[in-house]
């Protein structure tokens, strides 16, 4: 199964819609709830990052018999220092975003925690592609 979603830029109103939709579809497919949560939390974090930092973009989801692969591609400024961005608590989010409970600097660390494989392809001035893989034969 392949799914495609547009991610709006800088509009937190509908942020998380793609992840919520994917979660529902995975539940309907009868996938183990623990694995659904791994995929949904990871995708939500990446989706929020694309909204807050990435000027929006799109999400592509591919579900096969043994794994789910989520690719979030944004149109943002890129990540100058991935090592720093992976540190829990490090964030460049605005005060406005932080007041809503986002921007705690836990997005990428959470994705890493909840996925079996995380790839980050970032180009300064062009954007970032985050690829998340959750294997169906592995649990948390």
């Amino acid at each position: 199964m392949k799914l495609h979603y547009e991610i709006p830029a800088n509009d937190l109103t509908y942020a998380g819609e793609a992840s919520s939709s994917v979660k529902k579809k995975l539940v309907q497919l009868g996938i183990d709830p623990a694995l659904v949560k791994k995929a949904a939390v990871s995708m939500y974090e990446a989706e929020i990052n694309a909204v807050i930092h990435g000027n929006g973009g799109f999400a592509d989801v591919e579900v096969s018999s043994d794994r789910i692969i989520v690719t979030i591609t944004d149109k943002g400024p890129g990540i100058p220092n991935i090592e720093l961005a992976m540190q829990e608590g490090w964030s460049t989010a605005s005060d406005e975003v932080r007041e809503m409970g986002f921007g705690a600097g836990m997005g990428l660390p959470n994705i890493k925690r909840y996925t079996d494989k995380l790839d980050i392809d970032t180009q300064i001035g062009e954007g970032t592609k985050v690829t998340i893989t959750v294997e169906f034969n592995k649990r948390l």
Binding site: Y44, F102, R113
Partner: peptide, 22 residues
């Protein structure tokens, strides 16, 4: 929100002062 997602056990009641859509 990220902390809650990574730490709140399943089936918990979540107490929060946030009221926005997310």
């Amino acid at each position: 929100l990220s902390w809650v997602m990574s730490h709140a056990p399943k089936s918990s009641a979540w107490v929060t002062v946030h009221t926005h859509l997310n």
